[in-house]
């Protein structure tokens, strides 16, 4: 047992670490998205499954290929490329052709993520940036929505408009879009935005697993609710107007999954709430005054750009320095400046 030549390992503290790892967190996000994905496949058929598979596999391929080509360490093991692929597919309409998904994935992984240094370095949410790119390039494809299975007997068409299009187009919302149907997800839309119920379950799973905190989803969705409740609309009573605003247009998907992306959202507690409020407010601004009814993705992308500033402005209070101390220090600085004059 006694080994004279034993050389002991030396490491800095702490000697123990949590079992939680980057890949286990990413796996949790994937798990949380599964119910909504299954629902999408059920509602929109096998083509949406194909779209999901193409999107995920091309993201993984681009991530692997880029790092291989540039002789960098492989990073597909952290599963973040799978998450990006899944998220991007969630923002595509079910009828989008596969090549659109591939182009979106290329933009998301190579341009937005890897060119800035890979995981942890991108300043925009890759999936949303990919979607924004596709929206700008292929607007028609990106805004034609297939009829879901549950509405096939009522609506005799290939594509149809979303509830939000009716709402912000100043039209009556057709009666088959009941609050119950938009909550459960029998409505047209992108793959991932339809079932508010299943997305909320996924989001709550993430909060329970401590992958995300409640701050961003609550402040985001809360702001959307508050603004729509106060501003209202002529066509509907305020209560249902608010609920439609929350349940349609991807607020749930974006609030729980997109806005909470680690890299592109603030770190401090106060910063996260400000960021969530910002996302909600810009979403509503776009809906009321912009040219399209959704608005979430652009709102988040804009707030992504503010993350750095928010983090700086809302730093935590330093331990041992009270608000009084900060004020006193500021006053002293001011006095010193004036004295210097």
């Amino acid at each position: 047992m006694k080994n004279e030549k034993l050389v002991l390992d030396v490491a800095y503290q702490p000697q123990e670490r949590t079992a939680r790892s980057t890949s286990s967190i990413m796996l949790d996000v994937i798990i949380a998205l599964i119910p909504a994905s299954v629902w999408a496949v059920w509602q929109f058929g096998i083509q949406s499954l194909f779209l999901l598979v193409v999107s995920v596999s091309s993201c993984v391929f681009f991530e692997w290929g880029y790092r291989k080509l540039l002789h960098k360490s492989s990073s597909i093991g952290d599963l973040s490329a799978i998450v990006t692929g899944l998220m991007l597919a969630m923002t595509l309409p079910p009828t989008a052709p596969a090549w659109v998904a591939v182009i979106g994935c290329f933009f998301a992984i190579v341009i937005v993520k890897q060119l800035y240094g890979g995981i942890g370095k991108n300043f925009l949410n890759p999936a949303l940036a990919g979607r924004a790119f596709l929206m700008a390039s292929y607007a028609t494809i990106m805004s034609s929505y297939a009829v879901p299975r549950s509405l096939k007997s009522t609506v005799d068409a290939i594509s149809m408009a979303t509830p939000l299009t009716y709402m912000y187009g100043g039209q009556e919302v057709p009666e088959f879009f009941t609050l119950r149907s938009v909550f459960l997800g029998t409505m047209p839309g992108t793959l991932g935005e339809v079932s508010a119920l299943l997305l909320t379950i996924g989001g709550i799973y993430l909060i329970i697993r401590k992958v995300i905190s409640w701050r961003i989803p609550l402040s985001f969705i809360g702001t959307v609710a508050l603004v729509s409740l106060i501003a209202g609309s002529g066509t509907m009573d305020r209560g249902s107007w608010m609920l439609y605003n929350i349940l349609c247009g991807g607020v749930i998907l974006n609030g729980f999954f997109m806005a909470t992306d680690y890299v592109t959202s603030p770190i401090t507690a106060r910063g996260q709430i400000i960021y969530g409020i910002g996302c909600g407010a810009i979403t509503m601004l776009i809906r009321y005054f912009g040219s399209f009814p959704e608005g979430c993705s652009y709102a988040i992308l804009i707030m992504n750009l503010c993350t750095w500033a928010i983090d700086k402005a809302f730093n935590n209070r330093q331990f041992g320095v009270s608000k009084k101390d900060v004020k006193a220090a500021k006053a002293a600085k001011k006095a010193a400046k004036e004295a210097a004059k």
Partner: peptide, 21 residues
């Protein structure tokens, strides 16, 4: 090791610091 900016360090820091920054 690559920081993913999850902020889990900031949540637990008893000195109210932002370790990732």
């Amino acid at each position: 090791p690559t920081c993913i900016r999850c902020g889990k360090c900031t949540t637990v820091c008893p000195m109210h610091l932002q370790p990732c920054m």
